[in-house]
Amino acid sequence: MWQTEGKSIILITHKLKEIMQVCDRCTVIRRGRGVGTVDVADTSENKLAEMMVGREVSFAVEKETAVPKETVLSIKDLQVEDTRKVDVVNGLNLDVRAGEIVGVAGVDGNGQTELVEAMTGLRLVKAGSVTVSEQDITHYKPRKVTEAGVGHIPEDRHKHGMVMAFTVAENMLLQTYYQFPYTKKGILNYPNIYEKAKALIQEYDVRTPNEKTPARSLSGGNQQKMIIAREVNRSPDMLIAAQPTRGLDVGAIEFIHGKLVEERDKGHAVLLVSLELDEILNLSDRIAVIYEGTIVDIVKADETDEKELGLLMAGGKREAGEGQR
């Protein structure tokens, strides 16, 4: 609209779709340098992605069909307030079974953050219950939630997921430092901590000079790998991944997606909360759509598409069909 008024608009985004839809020309920058400027009409999402990372990219995730087993996570009538005392999770019900990835799709601010925080003990539950492996963890403190077999990849890794000034090793043991053999009688055993960290760095391909490097100096992708190493290595029955690939380069995204599928195939339950519809569609077996604090519908990932999800996320009902909006 402003365009027709003769105004110039600069849109800065990492969402390729947005660019394809509204822009006339597009400049791609990588590591602080301009890679090139193209006319949007002459390019495609894949070509842009290639410019962004410098190599060919595949968006699809390869995975077998899920074989879900018993229910691991069961959320019943959950009600949670945000910091302004407004109910943002409002009678939410959701089950996740062992060996499946359930994606939570929704527009930002529909209670996803508060849902995850309440499940992991970081936020008070006002009403309802959360059960993991038949343990009622509703009013557990974060540590007890962790010990009950929940792994949590937080949505804001700098705020919640890591201590920037700590070393990679200290960050990797952030959930288990107090346990034997890392702590004995209240005293830390650094040789054991370093040994464990080295093994994790190796296994999860964290690119760092060594385990004593401050986590601050790692790239975003490697910081996230460090967090995932910590959370996944505990082999939790229930893994909650909140926006696990936000702001990461495509290489790290591939790696992390692979790890999530691997966890599923080991027979663990995975809950994926993401704002990226592509990520949800690619990874999930079932997709729960959250709208205004409740799950409005659950669909099978291979029986739905972006259009339908988009409609549900906006509050439309599936039965109502497309014409309603």
């Binding site: 970081l122 705020k159 201590v163």
Partner: peptide, 14 residues
């Protein structure tokens, strides 16, 4: 030290 550097992450880590 963890609390000193990052309260939220410390709470997250239990």
């Amino acid at each position: 030290r963890s609390v000193g550097h990052n309260r939220q992450a410390s709470a997250y880590a239990g």
